[in-house]
Amino acid sequence: MSNNNPYYSSGDLEAYLLGMLSKEEAIQIEQALESDDELRKELKAIENSLLDFAKSHSVSPPAKLKSRVFDRLEKEGYKTSDSSSTQSPPSDQSKGVHRLRIWLIAASVALLVSFGLNLYLINENLTYQQELSELRSAYDEAVERQSVLAENTSRLESTLRTVAQTAVSIDLQAQEGFEGMKARVFWDSNTGEAILAPRELPAITADRTYQLWKIRDGQPESLGVFDLDERPIFNVEDRIFEADAFAISIEPEGGSVQPTADQIFLVGLVAG
């Protein structure tokens, strides 16, 4: 045995095997070992004695532990001897397969989540479609109502334009005991058209009604009954070509042939 190499007696070989050297010192030892067979033999002898030291402390692990260890290894990708496959450690290729498996699992999870999400969205979509259908139906009804209202409004506007051009406005004055009551009549004597616009009228019981009158030469003539709940203005159906005044009275339900004297509360004279 050549003992010329200083590593023989320095204690560095022992320290190397015990993992007590720095990385740089370990590299130097490894370089020295490459070119010195005797040094390698010396290292092997020290290694064997340390292995014996370790072996001398051997203790059989609990029998149950082996199955625990291999259950864990199987989870890590190792296939036990029960499997017919080869049992290679996780080489780069098998690591790739392992990574691929992870990606496949991830992709499967993503697909499942996507499927669930799609089902949810389809369900949501159906709900939205149902709501949309109901809204569209409500909208169509509103449009139809709007159309009817628009037609009525159009007709009324046309009447008002006509009346505004040539009609006179007659304010009906409150009689004694009915102060504060107001209404107005627009009347076009040329066309005979008239419109009543009640403004401040008292509420009346259900068994009573308002009735509009025209007065010509002292004689009242009914122009019809009306209810305040219906409309803000009323188109008078009868054509009126001659009138000295207009009046409103409160009459029994259905109207009267002659106005009840003490119930005539608004009167407006046509300007002469």
Partner: peptide, 14 residues
């Protein structure tokens, strides 16, 4: 790995 376990687990555990 099973063989490796059977051969070395006692020393490793010790």
């Amino acid at each position: 790995m099973e063989l490796l376990y059977d051969c070395f687990s006692s020393t490793v555990y010790g």
